[in-house]
Write a protein that binds this DNA or RNA. Structure first.
Lengths: 129, 129
DNA sequence: TAGGGTAGGAACCAAAAGTGTAGTACGCAC
DNA sequence: GTGCGTACTACACTTTTGGTTCCTACCCTA
């Protein structure tokens, strides 16, 4: 029983066409979801605050992404039913566990971002001559 | 110095508009990159084999994504300069380290996929009444 | 000599994603 | 009573993404 693939492959073969994880990858791969998860975990809970904090997100995408996260059970929407409206978004246990699973990824980004930028510059140099 | 945010937040504040990690998130968030990273790590190295393996990817997206990964220094393209063409794609050290950073994410997907599906069903139930 | 495999490039088109603007309905401060 | 803030929704619009199809150029097999 030799190991011909790296350790991190695990049992997640599922990434073929019918793979269930496609849905998850779609969810987290939509540019805003991870950011939102991050800032909500940082303690920003309200619509307006999230929008100001993230910078670049439109109200539409904010609402849409929050709904998607809520629908997947990653954040909880608490509507205080007041007027003017007061709504807060909090991570669920599931959302927090996903956050934990993403720790190494954020760490990698912090550590290796420079390497990626350098690689891109080198690549551009090789191909733009 | 109290901790008011979860451990996994780290120092990655960067996810604001000007944040460098946006580029990385864009890269890995494009539906095919992670899959490609995964199957290359599993030992599938050639264009045709990758296309057959992943199922659902078009030649265009395959090439495009491979170029993006190559440009970012995550995979290496080895062209054997033969005819008919023979090209192999391998992970670089950087690509392999990203793979390792993604281990917990794949693990989370495996563990929690059912929970997400259940949450979605519940949400749909609540909102489709 | 026709067809399949090798690894792509280019052009075109459809679909999806995302943006901006406007409007709802009300409270509060000036 | 004017305008800002709260949390949205709806519509039209543009941009991006991805898919399809056709093309190169050569090898091997039947």
């Amino acid at each position: 029983m030799k190991k011909e693939v790296p350790d991190w492959i695990g049992q997640v073969d599922p990434c073929e066409a019918n793979c269930p994880s496609r849905d998850i990858l779609d969810l987290i791969g939509d540019r805003w979801s991870l950011l939102l998860l991050l800032v909500i975990a940082q303690g920003v809970h309200r619509n307006g605050a999230l929008k100001r904090r993230i910078g670049g997100i439109s109200q539409k995408m904010l609402t849409q992404t929050l709904r998607a996260l809520e629908a997947s059970g990653l954040v909880e929407r608490r509507d205080f039913q007041t007027v003017p409206p007061h709504v807060e978004y909090h991570l669920t246990a599931l959302g927090a566990s996903l956050g934990e699973a993403l720790t190494p990824l954020f760490g990698w980004i912090e550590r290796e971002f420079d390497a990626v930028v350098a690689a891109r510059a080198a690549f551009a140099g090789r191909h733009a001559v």
